[in-house]
């Protein structure tokens, strides 16, 4: 078991690096899209209902099936993987973003509107800073989920730690299965710890 680690630690490290690249790219795209969707959804409750309902439906599709479904459209590889990860994240991010923005005291937003702030000013100056903890929590959940779902992306040749795991499964190579899974799990725990450490704490408010 340890023999594999000693011989192939560079393979594991490389796979972890590719994995992280995939996650980082997916997170950046996810956040940009989720921010845009949040602005749209916070304008109208009707749109918000439709969008979150649709995203919930998509989220309930198993990731392996989702990767397979997209292959005819965008082929094998990283692009498809990033698209799937971004789609899954929208549900997690949007739900948390909207709930966070909604949790801001109605008296506060009414006072802001009453003094003549535009909707955009209320969003940027009042609701976003007051919801920052909920926003950070949403991002953390999405990040951890992305790290773990990205493992499955190896099934469509997107690389990452899943490659070692799936290789092991195909050839019934126990050390590969074990180390591949352990490394994926370790990465998830690590990202969770790191983001917990850097997320904002309750301010003077």
């Amino acid at each position: 078991m340890t023999e594999y680690l000693i011989k192939h630690y560079d393979d594991l490290a490389e796979a972890a690096l590719v994995h992280l690249q995939l996650v980082l790219l997916a997170m950046v795209c996810s956040l940009v899209l989720a921010a845009a969707l949040t602005v749209v959804c916070s304008c109208s409750g009707k749109i918000a209902g439709i969008v979150t309902g649709l995203l919930a439906m998509i989220y309930s599709v198993p990731s392996l099936a989702m990767f397979a479904l997209l292959i005819p459209l965008t082929g094998l590889g990283k692009t498809t993987a990033v698209i799937v990860l971004v789609i899954y994240n929208q549900y997690l991010l949007l739900q948390n973003f909207l709930a966070g923005l909604d949790s801001v005291d109605k008296g506060v937003t009414e006072a802001a509107a009453g003094m003549g702030m535009t909707n955009l000013q209320i969003l940027i100056k009042i609701r976003l800073p007051l919801a920052r903890e909920a926003l950070a929590a949403g991002i953390r959940i999405a990040l951890v989920s992305t790290v773990s779902i990205a493992t499955i992306a190896a099934s469509i040749n997107a690389g990452g730690l899943g490659t070692i795991l799936f290789d092991g499964l195909r050839t019934m190579n126990i050390p590969k299965i074990v180390w591949g899974s352990l490394a994926s799990a370790l990465l998830v725990i690590l990202t969770d710890r790191v983001t917990r450490f850097i997320s904002p704490h309750r301010g003077p408010a």
């Binding site: 009414e110 006072a111 802001a112 009453g114």
Partner: peptide, 20 residues
């Protein structure tokens, strides 16, 4: 509407100070 509101003072029971 925005310029209208900026010319009118508005005070409510919930006060609605910005806590941050």
């Amino acid at each position: 509407v925005v310029s209208l509101r900026r010319r009118i003072g508005y005070v409510i029971q919930q006060i609605g100070l910005f806590p941050h």
